[in-house]
């Protein structure tokens, strides 16, 4: 599968990555190579096969709705690059 530079730019935008022109060229080539390699999966007929998302047979896990100790506000904020008055601080969102 041929990947274009345009594909790479679009995917970078979706993934919130800013990539240089040089990186665009490298990723275009490398992602094309990897997708070429995974093409071999199309040799297999999987029409009748159901997908596996988890190998362990999982069912929903429920618990009682009990009040428990949670992370305290100052602990939760301890690693924050910027905070103010007990909140995470972010750059401007609305222009």
């Amino acid at each position: 599968m041929e990947i274009t530079k345009g594909n790479v730019e679009h995917v970078a935008e979706l993934a919130r990555l800013e990539i240089t022109e040089h990186e665009k060229d490298i990723f275009t080539e490398q992602l094309s190579n990897i997708l070429d390699y995974v093409e071999m999966l199309n040799e297999l007929d999987t029409k009748e096969v159901s997908p596996t998302s988890h190998v362990v047979p999982l069912v929903n896990v429920f618990r009682e709705d009990e009040i428990k100790e949670v992370l305290k506000k100052d602990e939760a904020l301890k690693n924050a690059p910027e905070k103010e008055d007990g909140y995470f601080k972010v750059p401007r969102v609305i222009e």
Partner: peptide
Amino acid sequence: YLKAQKVRSLIA
């Protein structure tokens, strides 16, 4: 993605 998950079933 879906194709890969189906192949995952075959491997299992």
